[in-house]
């Protein structure tokens, strides 16, 4: 006696109906691939499976990486490599040509150095505030909270929003008749146009990017905190250790690997800041929030005097910074793995 098979539900039938053409397609693909398998053998099929990904990857990631160097050594406004003339290291020389090396405004490409300076201060301030707030949030979320997953979701929510949406949300709030002025008005502060003030726009770009990304880093730190063995804390409690001492002696040292990863990740992301700032301020007013990626974008594409070679040279310099940061991160990861093995 076999048990009667349950008749398929409506959703199951609908699913199999939808999947039918897909299955047919996969069977059709199978026919030529069987012939390939006969010719190349089972081991040769690995190449077949790898080919599409590697092809796309090669054309759209590796090839650009390589020809970026060629680009940075050519001049003119044409985009096709064959139409560009070789100029050697002229583009780099142009970036570094300054009358006085202590004053970025005296350089030929003062916009580049303005962008470098802005990006530097942005990275320093944003990353340190980011780590501080993410750490506090993670510590609080790691407490014995009611409805913890709800609170975690609250801080994580902006991470998924698109940078354009983030930029527009805050542009709307910082308007003259926006929510911020409304809030301050309750305390008798006159409405102010925040986005036309050089200093306040810089502060705004830091604040907005904090708002948008803090939840991501808090989440990684929270995972690190939850991986710390509970018995350490129990032992500390039995010894009557003060909470501050528990933090400095147990929590922080054991969280260090995660914290370092978060610092490097935050640095890498902050160096490339573009989207939300572009929508929020467009780099302005003036050049007060012009950051490196926007400089590359405008030099390469947007400005009337576009110079792709110069943009490529600038992007390679930026790439070098990112390579150093990535190597640091890989180094940290490897050290963490070795520790784990021991």
């Amino acid at each position: 006696m076999t048990a009667p098979t349950p008749s398929p539900t409506l959703t199951e039938r609908l699913g199999s109906l939808l999947m039918a053409p897909v299955h047919l397609l996969m069977r059709a693909i199978d026919i030529p691939l069987r012939a390939v398998q006969k010719a190349a053998g089972i081991g040769g099929m690995a190449t077949v499976f790898l080919a599409p990904n590697m092809l796309i990857f090669g054309i759209f990631v590796l090839l650009p990486l390589v020809i970026n160097f060629v680009y940075s050594m050519t001049g003119g406004t044409a985009f096709f490599l064959t139409e560009r003339q070789f100029v050697g290291a002229d583009q780099y020389a142009r970036l570094f040509q300054c009358a006085n090396y202590l004053d970025p405004m005296s350089c030929q490409e003062d916009a580049f150095w303005t962008a470098v300076g802005n990006t530097f201060w942005f990275v320093v301030l944003q990353v340190s505030l980011m780590i501080l707030t993410a750490l506090i949030t993670a510590l609080i979320l790691n407490r014995d909270l009611a409805a913890r997953s709800f609170w975690r979701a609250v801080f994580f929510f902006p991470v998924l929003l698109s940078p354009v949406v983030v930029g527009l949300i805050w542009k709307w709030i910082l308007q003259r008749q926006g929510l911020l002025n409304f809030g301050l008005y309750q305390f008798g502060v006159e409405p102010y146009t925040w986005l036309t003030d050089r200093n306040w726009t810089f502060v705004a770009t830091i604040g907005v990017s904090l708002w948008a990304h803090m939840g991501f880093y808090a989440l990684i730190l929270l995972a690190g905190l939850q991986a710390i063995p509970k018995d350490l804390y129990e032992a500390a409690e039995m010894d009557g250790t003060k909470p501050a001492r528990v933090f400095w002696r147990i929590t922080l040292p054991l969280l260090m690997p995660n914290l370092l990863v978060v610092v490097v990740l935050a640095l890498i992301r902050a160096v490339q800041i573009f989207d939300e700032v572009y929508v929020l301020t467009g780099g302005g007013p003036g050049t007060s929030t012009l950051y490196l990626t926007q400089y590359i974008y405008e030099t390469g594409f947007a400005s009337a005097l576009r110079n792709p070679g110069l943009a490529a040279a600038a992007s390679i310099l930026m790439g070098l910074v990112l390579v150093v940061l990535t190597l640091i991160q890989l180094g940290i990861g490897q050290r963490g793995e070795k520790k784990g093995k021991r």
């Binding site: 590796l62 990486l65 890498i268 990626t293 974008y297 390469g300 943009a311 990112l322």
Partner: peptide, 29 residues
């Protein structure tokens, strides 16, 4: 297969290639 670790290495190494570094040549491609 031969070259498997090379393929893995290439993929890992480019894990961090951001658009802002390759956008000019990518546009020409």
């Amino acid at each position: 297969f031969r070259g498997r670790s090379l393929a893995m290495l290439v993929i890992l190494a480019t894990l961090m290639v951001p658009l802002s570094v390759i956008m000019v040549p990518l546009y020409s491609i």
